[in-house]
Nucleic acid binder design. Structure first.
Lengths: 339, 339
DNA sequence: TTGAAAGCGCTAACAT
DNA sequence: ATGTTAGCGCTTTCAA
């Protein structure tokens, strides 16, 4: 691969001139530009981004650390983050942690401020303390899609009202007349899922209902998890009329389990999820869910990171996203005998 | 962020010594190692990977260029590629092209040999000629999961027998007694999907059947595409007893369309896909499909790329993966009235 | 065992 | 408008 100086020699100019042509600072005489461009074409020269990054003190690369690229939420996030990054002239490096916070932390250690200009941490189970210990000045780390508004730690974060999402889901089921409901809660991603359950419970409380512990299942945040939890719920509480899942993937599993048993959705049992991933629209019956606005959250998160890179702030930056909204589809209906 | 020389100064040694400690070449006296490590800890030093890459002429980063991270095939591929890369001490940079070959090519132009030590191109619609024009010596580009065995272009590639996959699918339907079948073919990813259809057709030919053009639908490679194609097929050919889809995503859409019309799977119509993505296992009825062995293909592809980086070859390298295998699940059954 | 110094390929003052 | 030169932070001979 040709280097700048080879191009310069061929064009009969110095590296500074070639560099100026490349970044078209309008400082070069058209005739020279011409010569240089011919030399570039002749050599097939392409700038070494590593060298440029070192010289500029900026790699134009950002990393996105996430727990499981196979969970369809994340690709949806990645797609918009990558697009926004590309439009702002950044490369996006996706770091999958296989749900292991230690791997996520290792990524941060290696990359933050040394390979990437900034890092977006998405549910990777990395503690604020660990991030603080890194103290990467001038290389921001943003927590995307968090529940906790913690002003004490000075880490910028994008806040989603998961509690409200759970509450909306609960309210919707209540409005349909449901009283005996099961809840399936994903474990693994810390507070996020608990907040959703709390929100759900708070909706019930407001209607003077309590959710018995026996009606809650904690499972892995997968289709299989939702399936198993539903089986368990159904065996012990065959009288439930609705199931609340803290995300759509588990709701999909729940629907499956129901289908396997010949239980009709929503006639016999209603199912509601949270997030509104593509699958929620695609499945049959289409899933009623509480949309978190993936596209918005991703856009806001990546833009915040890039803004902080280009324009460092000293105060903690907390950016809220709009509240979740209920999306009624075909998996919920009034309870049997009601209305 | 502290630099090597700051650490060196604090430890009272030179940068060369610190560098040796960091990469523990056993050339440093234990006592000095001790001092240096204390200085490292005290400063919170982490090596600047850009600078290291420039000095070493190796970034330890590889890129994976793919068309659509939202198509569930790709995350499954990414997950294993990332894991293998990580174990071999490489970072994986995922480049989503939004199905635009020009974006893929732009990525290659920018990254290949200048930021990444090598690039894995996965169905991104980039021509061999374009790749050749790049002539990135000492920085391999590998085409992953290709159908064409083209020894003429010297680009290494991993070859999947898509033709065979289509044939297996066709044979399976024939074995079940189906004769009137529709075919749904994804467009966009070039030869890959055509080869699958060709394989399907060849299976029919071997049984003295032809597939009329009117029974083939070309659509976008999505759930919605499969859905629409199925609607169209059903309207014009309500007598078909089976649908072959060139991938699982469209097969999912087909099943949906059938469900929407109250057509039972597989009692009324059988559906078969290709690939065996996670969704094929998760959906109900579970999808009969021809497994391409995503994990194997990904492992072989990324390993080939890394091998070529570490050990350049001059001959074209063509690596085949094991043949596809039929996975019978619940979406196919003997044709009504047969047996 | 450690230090000195050159250089990876580029950018960016500063001169001319 | 172009050239000169000094780094960016690291690795890596070669000396000491």
């Amino acid at each position: 691969m040709a280097t700048l100086s080879e191009v310069a020699r061929l064009a009969g100019v110095t590296t500074a001139t070639v560099s100026n042509v490349l970044r078209n600072t309008q400082k070069v005489k058209p005739a020279t530009v011409q010569k240089v461009q011919e030399a570039i074409a002749a050599t097939g020269y392409r700038p070494n981004l590593m060298a440029r990054a070192l010289a500029e003190g900026k790699s134009s690369m950002v990393a996105l650390v996430l727990p499981d690229i196979n969970n369809p939420f994340y690709p949806e996030f990645v797609r918009v983050a990558e697009r926004v990054a590309r439009h702002r002239n950044y490369f996006l490096m996706v770091c999958n942690t296989d749900e292991r916070p230690d791997i996520g932390l290792a990524y941060l250690h290696q990359i933050a401020g040394t390979l990437a200009d900034g890092v977006l941490v998405l549910h990777a189970g990395i503690s604020a303390d660990d991030i603080h210990a890194l103290k990467t000045r001038r290389s921001p780390i943003v927590l995307a899609s968090e529940e906790q508004v913690d002003l004490a730690n000075h880490i910028p974060h994008v806040v989603v009202n998961f509690h409200r999402a759970g509450q909306i889901a609960g309210q919707h089921l209540l409005d349909l007349g449901h009283r005996r409901m099961g809840a399936i809660v994903g474990c693994g991603l810390e507070g996020m899922q608990i907040a959703r359950l709390d929100g759900f419970v708070s909706a019930l409380s407001a209607a003077d209902l309590t959710l018995h512990e026996a009606l809650v299942r904690n499972v892995r945040d997968t289709v299989a998890g939702g399936h198993e939890a539903t089986d368990s719920l159904l065996e012990q509480h065959p009288d439930i009329t609705a199931i609340f899942c803290t995300n759509d993937l588990m709701a999909y599993g729940a629907c499956q389990a129901l289908a396997d048993r010949g239980i009709r959705i929503p006639q016999d049992i209603s199912v509601i999820g949270i997030t509104d991933i593509q699958l929620a629209r695609d499945m049959r019956p289409a899933l009623t869910t509480v949309a978190l606005g993936i596209e918005q959250v991703a856009t806001i998160s990546i833009n915040l990171l890039l803004d902080l890179i280009e324009n460092p702030q000293h105060e903690p930056t907390i950016v809220p996203v709009p509240d979740p909204v209920l999306v009624v589809r075909a998996s919920t209906a009034p309870v049997r005998g009601s209305i």
